[in-house]
């Protein structure tokens, strides 16, 4: 008598489990397929006089990292990249189709010239952001993704770039970007005065 109750219970539980998982599968299918809707963006572009130029503006300043938020396990230093501005005043018809510009950044290893110690550049990360008011909300320009202060780190990472579309070649834009820098090293890193160079390159 007891055994049959256990058996019947097991069978019911099994059936219920199957139903629940089938149901949740169907549910997941229903909600999982929520693809994002495309947004139409229309833009009117005023003509620009003269041949125009694709120019970069940088503040002639270097930057420093300050200790900020270190723990017993790791030491964290933060700072910010001097603002970089790209000005594109070329007429749209002067810009070849399919061309696009971008600013990429690469950091060199941190080196302590006195102690001879080196901290690999992959301990440095950054979070690029557009400078408010200059290019923010523009459909053409984008900042690169955040780079974590771990392998591969700040190597050939995009700071600012023009979206790869033919319409985005319009001239007359001023776009500024900066980036928060963060260096995360183990707590036992040898003390010293380390320096590194970030190379920012504007190419087309």
């Amino acid at each position: 008598m007891k055994k049959s109750v256990v058996l019947r219970g097991s069978a019911i539980a099994f059936g219920a489990a199957l139903l629940v998982s089938a149901g949740s599968a169907a549910l997941a299918e229903g909600t999982g397929a929520g693809d994002s809707q495309g947004v139409d963006v229309s833009v009117e572009i005023a003509p620009v006089e003269g041949p125009g130029a694709l120019a970069m503006t940088v503040a002639a300043a270097s930057t420093s990292l300050e200790e900020n938020g270190s723990t017993e396990l790791e030491r964290v230093f933060t700072g910010s990249l001097p603002t970089v501005t790209v000005t594109d005043t070329r007429a749209p018809e002067d810009v070849p189709v399919d061309s696009f510009w971008y600013v990429v950044g690469t950091a060199s290893d941190f080196h302590d010239s006195v102690g001879g110690e080196t901290i690999s550049a992959n301990h440095l990360g950054w979070s690029p952001k557009l400078v408010a008011g200059e290019g923010e909300g523009e459909p053409f320009v984008e900042v690169g993704g955040d780079v974590a202060p771990s392998d591969p780190g700040l190597v050939d990472q995009e700071l600012l770039y023009l979206a790869e579309s033919g319409e985005a070649n319009a001239g007359g834009g001023v776009f500024s970007a900066t980036a928060d820098l963060d260096l995360v090293v183990p707590a036992d890193v040898p003390a010293g005065t380390y320096t590194s160079t970030i190379t920012l390159s504007l190419f087309e």
Binding site: A55, M56, V58, A60, A61, S62, T63, S64, L65, G79, L81, P82, V84, A107, F110, L181, T193, Y194, T195, S196, T197, I198, T199, L200, S201, L202, F203, E204
Partner: peptide, 22 residues
């Protein structure tokens, strides 16, 4: 590639070399 670059002054711990080239 060829580029013309500007080097930041050497005060901070992170120098910035900015290049424009082709």
């Amino acid at each position: 590639g060829v580029a013309a670059s500007v080097l930041s002054d050497g005060e901070g711990s992170i120098g910035v070399e900015s290049r424009v080239g082709f």
